[in-house]
Computed example of a mutant assay.
Amino acid sequence: MTSTSAPPGLARFNGLEESAAFAVLHQVCACTAWVRALLAARPYATIAALHAASDAATAGLTTADLAEAMAAHPPIGRPAPGDPASVREQRGMSDASADLRAEMLDLTLAYQEKFGHVFLICATGRTGEQMRDAIEERIGNAPEREWEIARTELGRINRIRLARLVEEDARA
């Protein structure tokens, strides 16, 4: 399948009642403005069109919208209990040493103190060391720069989650 062909689950997603589609999109990204933008652009002919709509919606989010989305993300190293997506996305921390876990806890707390929000990174496929290196690099950023990096990371997370959504729909 190419990136421009529609996965079988996309038709099912397109056919969901609006309230059901809202609920599944809200699980992808907990920002109401983002969800509404994606709902308004349905139906999607391809996953590429869905991703393009997500990218456009993410680019248009205000700081308050970004804060709403980030508030639903658990800190790195502390996936949400009972949330398999959170555990899967943070898999890179599962084998981290106790020292690295303690270091990440200290860094994420310092980051949150400085910026007022969770350290957001697309953790999928990253090791604990890579996430530590990223937070160490980013903690020195100006707040405005960090908001834009968080926006980019949110876009990456949303793309992965949307792809998984339509793949899971295809298996349903």
Rank of each mutant, 00 (worst) to 15 (best):
G15H: 05
L165D: 04
A45C: 07
C29M: 14
R145E: 14
G9Y: 13
A40N: 03
A40I: 09
T124G: 06
T152F: 08
R101Y: 03
L120E: 01
Q130D: 01
Y111R: 02
G116P: 06
R159M: 11
T127H: 08
A85P: 03
E168P: 05
M1L: 04
V118Q: 07
A98K: 11
R42C: 04
G9T: 09
A6Y: 01
G128S: 11
R101C: 13
L25S: 08
R145P: 05
S3T: 12
T152V: 06
A49H: 06
K114F: 05
V28M: 08
E17K: 07
A102G: 10
R132H: 09
E153Q: 14
A170E: 04
A71M: 02
A72S: 14
A41E: 15
L10T: 01
Q130E: 11
A49R: 03
L10S: 05
Y44M: 05
E168T: 15
D133E: 14
E168A: 11
I135G: 01
I160C: 04
F115K: 03
N14R: 03
S97G: 10
P75I: 06
I76F: 11
F13V: 00
L107H: 05
A41K: 14
R88K: 13
L154R: 07
K114E: 06
R126K: 14
L61T: 12
D99N: 01
E89L: 02
T63N: 00
A150R: 01
L10R: 00
A59Y: 01
V118L: 07
L120V: 12
T4D: 07
Q112F: 09
A72D: 05
V166N: 06
A163N: 12
D106A: 13
A67K: 00
G9W: 13
A6K: 02
A20T: 13
A30N: 10
P79F: 09
R151I: 03
G155S: 11
E144S: 12
D83I: 06
S94V: 11
P79C: 09
P75L: 02
E136D: 05
V24T: 14
D83L: 00
L38C: 12
S54D: 11
R42V: 08
R161W: 07
R78H: 14
P8W: 08
R42W: 01
L107N: 09
L109R: 09
T108C: 13
I139M: 10
A98Y: 04
G60R: 03
T32N: 15
P7K: 06
D169V: 02
T32V: 14
L50A: 09
D55P: 03
E146I: 05
E103W: 05
L109H: 06
A123H: 07
A102R: 13
A59S: 07
I135Y: 00
L107M: 13
F119L: 08
S19C: 08
R36G: 09
H51Y: 10
M104L: 15
L154C: 08
T63W: 02
D95M: 13
M93T: 15
Q27G: 15
W147S: 00
T32R: 13
T63G: 02
V28H: 08
